[in-house]
């Protein structure tokens, strides 16, 4: 039959021009590899430095850092795509269910209390942020649950409320303990300038990969959610379980990203929209393409943050917005025109 192999082949001829996700993924992989090579090469002047130290800088600072950037980008974009799908709202971002608020509060608490013990080789601030983020998500979920069901609008509102509460406590802490001001502000702005990047990768890498896997398993359910919760239920989706799994996936990915990189905004909001503009709304395409595009965007932004004004490091969140926003607008306009 002539429409064999649909939908992909069919769509290419349709008025809605979409790209195959395979091609986009291949392109993203190529770009990322180039960014990674440049990232490992660029930085402080290493001429006249002992080969041992040079090796140290390349393999233990720059390489894990670009990997960390990719991890954070992929995690935030995956979480963004999951939450946008779940809440049927293209303006949702990874921080809607309070993860960032909880993570920030816990991280700042650990800074203020001067926590110094590492957890599984993870810096105390990172460990606190991860746990705090997950805890906040858990609290939001519990608050939104009424008679065994978690209505999505309630969840969204509970997320806002818990987030607001966390940032209120955060402000109080900031004022009360302003001795650690610069450390706190830097953490809140987001940064990948770590001297222990490998140990962060070792812990958070598996967490993000698991979260992405879980999201991928529920990608088709996420498509069903776009028609409304009731429709999804009618089509045979175990709605509450799917919701729980997707929330876990999104919360773990976000908490891991925040733990290693602080609060990097914009990526999780824009990248999934970008992915949909490129490959259409099917989450089986959107999730992997988002992850790949997010990895590229954050790696590129971190390269910029590191090298735009040496030896100063610019806040990576500002760079992601600076680089991502115009590109996003261009894609939007191009799509609107076609």
């Amino acid at each position: 039959m002539d429409w064999n192999g649909w939908p992909k082949r069919f769509i290419r001829n349709a008025s809605m021009r979409r790209l195959g996700s395979g091609r986009v993924l291949a392109a993203a992989a190529g770009i990322w590899a180039a960014v990674a090579v440049v990232s490992v090469m660029a930085g402080a002047d290493l001429s006249g430095v002992s080969p041992e130290i040079r090796k140290e800088v390349l393999w233990n600072l720059r390489l894990p850092r670009v990997l960390l950037a990719a991890l954070v980008g992929a995690a935030l974009s995956t979480a963004g795509a999951v939450f946008q799908g779940l809440f049927r709202n293209p303006l949702a971002d990874p921080f809607v269910i309070g993860v960032s608020g909880g993570a920030a509060l816990a991280a700042v608490l650990s800074i203020v209390l001067g926590a110094s013990a590492t957890v599984l080789g993870l810096a105390p601030v990172a460990a606190a942020a991860f746990v705090g983020g997950l805890l906040a998500a858990g609290v939001v979920y519990r608050l939104a649950r009424v008679r065994g069901r978690v209505p999505l609008p309630t969840l969204l509102l509970a997320g806002f409320a818990v987030g607001a509460l966390a940032s209120a406590f955060l402000s109080v802490l900031l004022v009360a303990a302003s001795r650690s001001w610069s450390e706190i502000v830097l953490w809140l702005m987001g940064s990948l300038a770590h001297t222990d990047a490998w140990s962060r990768l070792r812990i958070m890498g598996p967490a993000v990969v698991l979260a992405m896997g879980l999201a991928a398993i529920y990608a088709r359910d996420l498509n069903m959610f776009l028609l409304g919760e009731e429709s999804a239920r009618h089509l045979g989706v175990e709605v509450e379980r799917a919701k729980r799994m997707l929330l876990v996936a999104g919360a773990v990915a976000t908490a891991a990203a925040v733990a290693v990189g602080g609060i990097i905004g914009f990526v999780g909001l824009v990248v999934p929209n970008l992915a949909r503009a490129l490959v259409g709304p099917d989450h089986r395409d959107v999730l992997p393409v988002s992850a790949a595009a997010g990895a590229v965007l954050v790696s590129l932004a971190d390269l910029g943050a590191r090298c735009a004004a040496p030896p100063l490091e610019l806040p990576i969140g500002a760079i992601t917005a600076l680089a991502g926003a115009p590109f996003f607008l261009w894609v939007l306009r191009r799509k609107a025109r076609s």
Binding site: W6, P7, A14, M16, G85, N223, L226, L235, R276, G280
Partner: peptide
């Protein structure tokens, strides 16, 4: 259902294919 509000631009055929989920 009476109606369905769809925020994301799935194609009609993709919507119908969702009926195959079960």
């Amino acid at each position: 259902p009476q109606d369905a509000v769809v925020e994301f631009d799935f194609l009609a055929l993709e919507i119908v294919l969702m009926g195959r989920y079960p």
